[in-house]
Nucleic acid binder design. Structure first.
Lengths: 262, 262
DNA sequence: CGCTGCAACTTGTCTAGACGACTAGATGCA
DNA sequence: TGCATCTAGTCGTCTAGACAAGTTGCAGCG
């Protein structure tokens, strides 16, 4: 067990009211913020911290688990605790559904990812008919049944988002939309071909901690929230023709919106 | 120490690979999801869980701290662990900066909160001149100095958001914008009076776990992320006239955006 | 009646130790 | 050389206990 490089971490203040494990977390947090531990760098091991601060192992682990739920570090069994690197983020522009982006044969996700130098993948493709949940039903104007299209998106092998599109079944049945691959330009291009000229989208954004299923599906580290986006597409007659429910790893996304000042 | 109501929680599977504290967390999570513990209800105490599952207290605490960092429950010293109630959310519409909302004498936040039946407050008002950070500087076209306006917003006594507006100093100095209260319609109304007719806003949205300062300022429970919104306002000449950096308690907000299909 | 203070119960913090499981590098054998 | 094995180091899980500190309700006192 190597000694800690001197000067990296200070010592505890026994007169402080602040709990010992919080003081240790504070010191590690400050060291990370100031760059004394770089992104991806290994923190001192638990036993080194135990020796340095003269506390028991559970106290050190308590401090580390604080940093972990803050998203600052992540631990790897058998290896150590590491400063969590910031993954490259995907920027979503508010014009990403503009018609001009629908010309290509590939999906918007694929085009954009390749332009950014990443390797895109789409998996978990599932297309099926369902009874809508009350929420989806209300957004779509209470259809009895809907077509649900589910998929997961990955960048360079890392899952970043999964999404389900819901369409009223009377609108989508026996059309290319019900096929696994709906063809160039995606389902929005198909909807317009079917006479549903798109007028506008409403997006609803929340952020929260992920459910266990979401942690598994997106392989999320602890301390990473998700962005939950629900988009409803309306045609020029004012009918809601699609609802897309998307859950994104928050550390992989920045959303951009352009608002006219009217 | 009262016995646990029978049937609320099951027992452990000793043959399972899943760690004991995870099994306990799973059972509590399921019970909460299924409504067997209502919002705001008290969970069984640690000693009751210790007795029920026949494990040590640290194992129970480990399970509870999982649920806490998921945002499902929050503990109160001396009282117990409670299912976290969902606070009322504030919806932000994408037209919230439209000129028509600027007519009133009160701020948009105040008007909207009172319409929703809440008691709004604004505090921590601070207006000062500063040297901009590199990021703010780049967004504002590299001014040497900026005017910073900081404030915190509360609903019914609960802090929900704090924000800082940055304006190039040459534009804001010796104007009502540099006053603590900039007058009816806020700084956007003043900017237009000064000849900077607003053209559009760009908003950039991220979600992440809060820093210790943000936890303190917004009095955040653990397991609650923040939404970080950076808005830049542009005038009709294409100049960035304001950058507003906002941090919101994610459990108090839903953001709504309206996107034309162009 | 009102108030104080105690008792019981709650979560918060910390200790000292044990064993398990995973990783990575060194060792030694074929 | 190539591979299997060993070993030291790491984090993961769990125990049994101690004392601190906040909350609540009640008994008893003035």
């Amino acid at each position: 067990m190597a000694a800690l490089p001197s000067g990296t971490l200070g010592s505890l203040d026994p007169t402080s009211d602040r709990a010992v494990f919080r003081q240790i977390a504070d010191q590690l947090r400050e060291a990370i913020d100031k760059g004394r531990f770089a992104e991806g760098a290994k923190l001192p091991s638990e036993s080194e911290l135990v020796e340095h601060f003269g506390v028991s192992r559970m106290t050190v682990r308590n401090a580390l688990s604080m940093l972990q739920s803050e998203g600052l570090v992540s631990s790897e069994h058998g290896k150590g605790v590491f400063v969590r690197p910031r993954p490259p983020v995907r920027r979503l522009a508010s014009d990403r559904f503009a018609r001009r982006h629908r010309e290509q044969g590939k999906s918007a996700f694929t085009v954009e990812a390749e332009a950014a130098g990443s390797r895109p993948e789409v998996d978990n493709l599932e297309v099926k008919e369902e009874r809508p949940t009350p929420d989806i039903s209300a957004r779509l104007g209470a259809p009895r049944r809907v077509l649900a299209r589910r998929r997961r998106y990955l960048l360079d092998g890392r899952p970043v988002e999964f999404a389900t599109s819901y369409l009223p079944l009377d609108l989508a049945r026996d059309t290319p939309i019900a096929q696994p691959n709906p063809g160039p330009g995606g389902i929005y291009a198909r909807l317009e071909e079917l006479g549903h000229k798109l007028d506008h989208f409403d997006e609803e954004i929340r952020a929260r901690m992920p459910s266990p299923l979401e942690i598994k599906t997106l392989r999320l580290a602890s301390g990473v929230p998700v962005i939950h986006l629900i988009r409803t597409a309306f045609d020029t007659k004012g009918r809601a023709v699609e609802v897309c429910d998307t859950v994104m790893a928050a550390d992989a996304y920045v959303l951009n919106y352009h608002l006219p000042a009217t």
